[in-house]
Design a protein around this nucleic acid. Structure first.
Lengths: 140, 140
DNA sequence: ATGAATTAGTTTAGATATTAAGAATAAACA
DNA sequence: TGTTTATTCTTAATATCTAAACTAATTCAT
């Protein structure tokens, strides 16, 4: 069997930890968890999403999302409404408070990203992105 | 700010999900969680480890490891003993039952890895591994 | 030698992951 | 039309993550 350190899932996990180390302090200062931030970013990108779509975009399972949405709603960052056509579906979108949060955080996030890109190398980042995308799209 | 889908941490997360999809069924059939499997593999690679070293190798924080070790011990997969020189340290190692588990699982794990390597491409896998390693070692 | 830092490991509290099962609504279909 | 089947979302149970505080054992400077 493959050597422990050569395990691809482990390598991906460690790389992810390293990349998140850049942003974790920023999020923590604003009392937003990593998953909450992922949800907020997805909603900002798509304006309005159903819970199921949101789960797919964020790579979060529905049961987890139920709780995350509940807490984000309590904190006033997102609002929900029932779909008119299909009463099973819930439509989610950002509040103004969430947009304000983006205004506050974006500059620092961008700064961190720039610093990282410079440190790691722009071409290498592009290569990596390409390889990761192909891996993620692999249907096994 | 960077587009949602271009987020590196998200890309790494999705790639990891894709790669774990190969092995999750195997682990589930044997009632071992992903994290437990990581711990077992690390102990197999290093024979004997302290809790703290184990945490670093597996990318698991100490508080999580406390519970994981407790359950693995209850299941009879690992044994612990106190260090003689330093009573704070705990030394961990595998039991015969764990070694049996490896005997049973290794062939299937290997098969899955081969299939994946062939599907994704050996050179690409090497490239990816290299890029991930450099990323993980980046001191930010 | 002794009291202040350090260190390994645990506990706690709240949030999330994972699987399975349940509730409500909608679609399919005899 | 009435029943089955599918889909969306939630609940439940257990395991893990994350940050912070805590205990016990060791080290270190004075």
């Amino acid at each position: 069997m493959r050597k422990f350190e050569d395990s691809l899932p482990l390598q991906l996990l460690k790389a992810r930890e390293a990349s998140m180390a850049l942003f974790r302090p920023l999020l923590q200062d604003n009392n937003v968890t990593e998953q909450q931030w992922r949800v907020l970013r997805a909603l900002k990108a798509f304006d309005e999403l159903e819970s199921k779509q949101l789960a797919e975009h964020c790579c979060i399972l529905s049961p987890s999302l139920t709780g995350i949405i509940k807490r984000l709603e309590q904190q006033g960052y997102i609002k929900r409404k029932k779909s008119d056509e299909d009463q099973r579906r819930t439509l989610l979108s950002l509040t103004d408070k969430a947009l304000d949060l983006f205004e506050r955080l974006s500059p620092d996030v961008e700064t961190q990203y720039q610093a990282f890109t410079k440190l790691y190398g722009e071409e290498k980042l592009e290569q990596l992105t390409k390889l990761l995308k192909e891996l993620a799209e692999l249907k096994v």
